[in-house]
């Protein structure tokens, strides 16, 4: 894979999107390095669409093993993967999907001590996590590196998405100062399908510089009523992660 140059194979496979944003747009996608935190329900969808779109380099980190109860929504993992590392299972599928993409799979628990090393060299972070404590770690890493953080979360038939741009928008802590207490989530598979696609769409638009992003907008998806609602947001000047008092 040569960065910045599209092969004949690539031009053929991306033809239907090159007609929208041109070869230069496709080259931007190819040069992009995207960090995806989580290879579960959201991660499966985000990774599949970013891989199909031709993002040049993707690093996915997850600490989990595939369990039968994951299979209703984590569509990169199949019956034959139960008991395997999620990142290994995901990488295998994605490499078969699009060999042009450089995929790196790391089986690890993201924490305060390793996050800087894990995300180093990447242009943006996609939040496909299943808990808020790790999300806050990623939020701080994105703020300290000044790279965008694409938040998504789901519950049942409902989901939420927002795009966080350091220095410009509210950060995750501005919006959600406290983590909800842990619980076993109930999720219908189509919900991370919708939310993961919205996140992947935000990533692609950000790289291309096209359209409008979900900046300072918390989008809430109601899959039962089939409605999208929005809450306008703003940076909290006293935010402990991005405010003037923050230790970053």
């Amino acid at each position: 894979m040569v960065l910045g140059v599209l092969t004949g194979n690539e031009i053929a496979r991306y033809r239907r999107q090159i007609s929208i944003f041109g070869k230069n747009g496709q080259k931007k996608l190819k040069k992009a390095k995207v960090f995806v935190a989580g290879a579960g329900g959201l991660g499966s969808v985000v990774l599949a669409y970013l891989t199909a779109a031709g993002i040049g380099s993707i690093r996915v980190v997850d600490n989990d093993i595939v369990e039968p109860s994951n299979l209703n929504r984590q569509i990169l993992h199949w019956d034959c993967d139960v008991g395997r590392e999620k990142v290994t299972s995901a990488k295998e599928k994605l490499e078969k999907m699009n060999a042009n993409v450089k995929l790196e799979a790391i089986s690890a628990t993201i924490d305060r001590d390793n996050v800087e090393e894990l995300v180093a060299g990447y242009d943006m972070i996609v939040d496909a996590m299943d808990n808020f404590s790790t999300r806050y770690v990623l939020n701080r890493a994105a703020l300290s590196r000044k790279i965008p953080f694409f938040h998504g979360a789901v519950q049942g038939f409902y989901g939420q998405v927002t795009t966080i741009i350091p220095d410009r928008t509210a950060c995750l802590r501005c919006i959600f100062p406290e983590a909800p207490p842990p619980a076993t989530p109930a999720v219908v598979g189509v919900t991370p399908g919708v939310i993961g696609c919205l996140q992947a769409g935000e990533v692609i638009k950000y790289i291309l510089g096209m359209g409008e992003l979900l900046e300072d907008r918390l989008l809430i998806w109601d899959g039962l009523k089939v409605e999208m609602d929005e809450i306008p947001l703003e940076k909290n000047p006293h935010c402990r992660d991005c405010g003037s008092q923050s230790s970053l």
Partner: peptide, 8 residues
């Protein structure tokens, strides 16, 4: 007023 969503 928003209910919590945290799953991935």
């Amino acid at each position: 007023i928003i209910p919590p969503m945290f799953a991935g």
